[in-house]
Computed example of a mutant assay.
Amino acid sequence: MKSVNKWIKLYFALGLNYDEILSCLAFKNHIIISKSTLRRKLKQCRLFRRKYYSDILEVALFIISELESSGRQHGYRWMHLKCLQSGYNVTRDTVYLLLQILDSEGVKSRKRRRLKRRQYHSKGPNYVWHMDSYDKLKPYGIAINGCIDGFSRNIVWLEANITNSDPKVIANYYIKAVRRKSGCPQRIRADLGTENTYVEQMQKFLRRDHADELAGDKSFLYGKSTHNQRIEWFWGLLRREMGQYYMDMFSEFSRDDSDLFCGDHLDKSLIQYCFMDLIQRDLDSLQLTWNTHTLQSKQNYGTERQRPILLYTMPELYNAEERLCRVEDNEIDICEEETVYRTILCDETIACLCEMIRRENNLQKPSYADEAKDLYKRLRRLIRFELESMDV
């Protein structure tokens, strides 16, 4: 009984509706209950969508805290899902009205027409993974790499690091995903670049003995970025939801009249030290919200409501089949030995210096972007003052 309630609470917190919760219980947990039983259990747990709404002031304060960082890029549907996943019971209409009050300019700027895109077709989850790097923040020392499943649009990984050019680092993202899933995709699509060479070799190695039409050398495909449709589209969403916020902030640092960023090793390392954890936290939040949100485009999968995580984990509901290729643990171990996992997300010497300055001046690690901005300015001023004193 406790196990059932635990799963129900989790799926409810993710924002799933009744039918989706029942499907997850049946397919993922092998628990079959009726909708009336689900309603009763939700009532026992005091979980309601249309009762016991959260205090509107608390919701407004949460939205304000989101608007103080990259959350100002979110639309009302995205913000509503983040409210639900943060424990606030609120209607979508209420979130929309609050955003009109708290961020009227942002609401207006998001009201624009969308281009009609060409249709994309895939045979099922893990048929093709699309991987790529996002370089818009790279001039400031932040390198992002991601991978998305072509069928479901479920994000496989989304990582911020000091580099997205080291093939051993990119390969570590890949092999960690393969280990989590106990298998690899039938095919990977990527841009032509040296950073993808280790992933190419590992994918072909893991697929060498499989018997399908894409086994071996055909399991990895290079192509132009314009043809890597799924991940290129996602980078546009990442820029809207959080990337533009950091681009604007860092661009402000490098303005001629601000003199807060000159692009040298010290400045990039300080940005990495102050912002890397926050950016990774935003990426993790983006991944969770994207994977659990309802897709607006209606594909012919037999139902109108489609969420990436459900398309990915329960393809049977959408007239598709799982395409994951099982691999042995010892083969994954062999591949992982050739990868690099970077735990230090900043120059080690500069990181130690920053830690020493923080302790001496009783400075806290930042929890929000504005705090990171203030910490960056202070550390930069103190360190450059010491360096100039040494030169004299």
Rank of each mutant, 00 (worst) to 15 (best):
Q85P: 01
V90A: 06
V90H: 00
V95A: 03
Q119C: 06
L97T: 10
E105L: 09
Y127E: 14
G71D: 07
G75V: 03
S86R: 09
H130S: 15
G75W: 03
M131T: 13
R114T: 12
R118W: 13
S70C: 14
W129F: 06
E105P: 03
M131Y: 10
M131R: 10
R117Q: 13
S86Y: 02
H121P: 01
E68R: 15
W129I: 03
R118E: 09
Q73K: 07
H74Q: 12
D103W: 09
V95N: 02
L99K: 03
R72G: 05
N89Q: 05
R77H: 14
S122D: 10
H130I: 06
K116I: 08
L102V: 02
S86I: 02
C83L: 06
L115Q: 14
R92G: 06
Y88Q: 06
G124K: 00
E68G: 15
H121I: 11
H80M: 06
S122P: 00
S86F: 03
Y88W: 04
S122M: 04
V95F: 06
E105W: 11
D93G: 08
R110W: 05
S104V: 01
R110P: 01
S109K: 10
T94D: 12
V107I: 14
D103R: 00
N89S: 13
Q119E: 10
H80F: 12
Y120L: 13
G71C: 07
D93H: 10
R110H: 07
H121T: 12
R117F: 03
G87L: 04
H130P: 07
K123I: 08
L99T: 01
K116G: 06
L97K: 12
L102H: 05
D132C: 02
Y96V: 04
Y88K: 01
D103V: 01
G71N: 06
V90M: 03
L81W: 10
K108Y: 08
S86V: 05
V128I: 14
D103C: 00
V107S: 01
C83F: 00
R118K: 14
N126A: 06
Y76F: 12
V90I: 11
M131Q: 15
H74T: 04
R113V: 06
S109D: 15
R72P: 00
Y120V: 15
T91D: 01
H130M: 13
D103Y: 09
K116F: 09
Q119M: 07
R77D: 15
L102G: 00
Q100L: 05
R117C: 05
G106M: 02
W78Q: 11
V128M: 10
E68T: 14
M79A: 05
D132S: 02
K82A: 13
Y88H: 09
Q73P: 02
R114E: 13
S104F: 07
R92S: 10
L102S: 03
G106E: 11
L99S: 01
C83V: 05
E105Q: 13
V95Y: 05
K108M: 08
Y120C: 08
Y76T: 02
D103F: 08
W78H: 15
D132G: 04
R72E: 12
D93C: 10
R118G: 08
Y127M: 09
R77T: 13
S86H: 14
L115S: 14
S104Q: 05
R110L: 10
Q73S: 12
R113L: 14
S104L: 07
K82G: 00
